[in-house]
Write a protein that binds this DNA or RNA. Structure first.
Lengths: 140, 140
DNA sequence: CTTGAAGCTACAGTGGCTGTAGATCGTATC
DNA sequence: GATACGATCTACAGCCACTGTAGCTTCAAG
């Protein structure tokens, strides 16, 4: 039987079989052809699309954003602005997340330091430091 | 009626009312006292604990880790090592996430750049770039 | 005593899958 | 052909950490 089985697609893209079926249910992949027995068979176009989805997921796009990007691919005219907007939104979001994580890191380091080297019978100050929001300079 | 209502606790900690009840169901907060009519009334100890939970959540601890930290608070002896381990694990995790986000950012910037300034009638290259995993230097 | 905000329980829904059960299919080997 | 066994099928439940809803009761101020 010609075409890729769902397992072959999975091996090639690193996307789990169940996840591929889930994407189909979500409308991100078209209904594929079937064998006489009802098993899915895919062509190279589906392989490409699944690679696209997998890559975009790894870049942190959610499934709705990916659906939007796919729709843009299928209506090529004047899609530049939208695709750029979506990608730039993601960049802004990622920079924001990095900034927040850095603040968290700094605070956790501070929390651990308040206790380091101290080992009497008292409850650990890490726990106090965690409860003590006053000490954070961050805005969270 | 003495004690804080659930709404007062919510206002003081920034944790939503429904979330407070959810924490109670998860065992992170004890069953509070109730008024004759069945409404929850909290003391300062519960307020402190909820602040602790809220702060730890903001630092990215999951509820299981927080439950562990609370358990450590209640059995003070020899808790240092464990509390430090949990906090240090989080620091490592956060650094890892920062590193991965930076790679994503770099790639997205690259993706957007492949197209910038180009505005013919062709499908946007952002979409190609997203599908083209070959071009990533990262390990994802 | 009335009113309206706040609280109550119980349950369904979110996103993005993952795991399970129990059946069927496809293909390599004998 | 028959058989064996892995791959695939559908349908549904479960995960995390909430969030939202419906329909009711309670509290506290005026």
């Amino acid at each position: 039987m010609q075409g890729h089985s769902i397992g072959a697609l999975s091996r090639r893209t690193g996307v789990k079989v169940t996840t591929i079926r889930y994407y189909e249910g979500r409308g991100l992949l078209p209904d594929p052809g079937r064998t006489g027995g009802g098993q899915r068979r895919y062509g190279d176009a589906e392989l490409d699309r699944l690679s696209f989805i997998a890559h975009a997921r790894q870049l942190g796009f959610d499934l709705d954003a990916i659906a939007e990007l796919i729709a843009l691919q299928e209506t090529p005219h004047a899609a530049h602005g939208d695709a750029h907007r979506i990608a730039k939104d993601r960049i802004i979001e990622i920079r924001d997340r990095i900034a927040r994580l850095r603040r968290l890191e700094a605070e956790l380091v501070r929390v651990v330091k308040t206790c380091d080297g101290q080992s009497d019978g008292q409850p650990c100050r890490v726990l106090h430091a965690l409860a003590d929001h006053q000490a954070c300079e961050g805005e969270h």
